[in-house]
């Protein structure tokens, strides 16, 4: 088992005919069960074509109807990306993973509002995607650094996830699923959602969470863990040394009005029973100490 995606997942690529969509879909097909998993592409106006043998449809609804796919990945450029998510939500897909970086904030707010009554799960935007090692990869992460195991990883940052996975690999620790939730403040899935799913997943024994400065998602997640989690959670919060008032790369990574500091997040998480390391080079060792 795993969370969100597995070897039986069938995927639609939105933005299939663009350079990025085509390139990464190719890489995903080359990973594990990818050849069978990626069944359709969508680009409005390009229906009837095929890209590298994958049929392209005009709409998500049509692609879903024709192929039975329930998940989509969005590589559509920023001006049209929110509308692409809306389309996947209207087609009632189970999961939409949006890789696109740079979607206007007001677009995403409107998209999230429209999703309020929907059951579709959104991961991202501005994220590396989701991977269940040795089964399926949906996104832009390097597949080969991952291997199958029983630790769940959730992170706001792509490269920091790769770093953590690399540390786990050196220690021979595999992952059940790795979820990049993205660095935008207006996003879909939050740390708390992913940790709930990992907590319910019989094949996940421990969880690693990489947070960063800005917002209060990590704190909310901590409070949920204190009351509900039955599995050990290791955490690292990036940005302990970031100056206040400056936006640090990710749109969400900013300490504003004294809120969103790493100090505050770390102290709340510790109170909630989360195992926090302040050493980004020591995350793997911390996980190892938790699973024996």
């Amino acid at each position: 088992m795993s969370i969100l995606i597995n070897r039986n997942t069938r995927v639609i690529t939105q933005g299939m005919t663009g350079k990025t969509g085509r390139f990464h879909t190719g890489n995903c097909r080359a990973y594990a069960n990818g050849e069978a998993a990626f069944v359709a592409g969508v680009t409005p106006g390009r229906g009837g074509q095929d890209v590298d043998g994958i049929p392209v449809y005009d709409s998500v609804a049509e692609a879903k109807r024709e192929t039975g796919a329930t998940v989509s990945v969005v590589y559509v450029p920023p001006p049209f990306a929110a509308a692409a998510i809306d389309e996947a939500v209207e087609a009632e897909l189970e999961l939409v993973i949006c890789i696109t970086e740079g979607i206007p904030v007001s677009d995403m707010i409107k998209t999230r509002r429209k999703m309020e009554s929907s059951r579709t799960i959104l991961v991202g935007p501005n994220c590396p995607g989701v991977i269940t090692p040795d089964e399926i990869k949906i996104g832009i992460m390097p597949g080969y650094i991952h291997h199958k195991g029983r630790v769940g990883v959730v992170s706001r940052s792509g490269t920091l996830t790769y770093e953590v996975v690399g540390q786990l690999r050196k220690l021979g620790i595999g992952q059940s699923t790795c979820v990049g939730i993205g660095g935008d403040p207006v996003n879909g899935t939050k740390h708390k959602d992913v940790i709930k799913w990992f907590n319910d997943d019989p094949e996940t024994d421990a969880i690693v969470m990489c947070g960063e400065i800005g917002g209060t998602d990590e704190e909310e997640c901590g409070r949920w863990i204190a009351e509900n989690a039955t599995k050990p959670v290791a955490a690292f919060i990036a940005g302990a040394t970031a100056p206040p008032g400056k936006r640090m790369g990710h749109a969400g990574a900013i300490i504003a009005g004294g809120k969103g500091t790493a100090r505050e997040k770390i102290s709340v998480l510790r109170e909630c029973g989360v195992h926090v390391t302040e050493n980004p080079a020591g995350i793997g060792e911390l996980v190892k100490s938790l699973i024996r």
Binding site: S157, G158, T159, L160, E163, G239, A240, M248
Partner: peptide, 16 residues
């Protein structure tokens, strides 16, 4: 450093 999260983490590591 490549990537915002790793860049922040690298700053933290130096200070540590």
């Amino acid at each position: 450093v490549g990537g915002a999260g790793l860049a922040l983490a690298t700053m933290d590591l130096l200070k540590l």
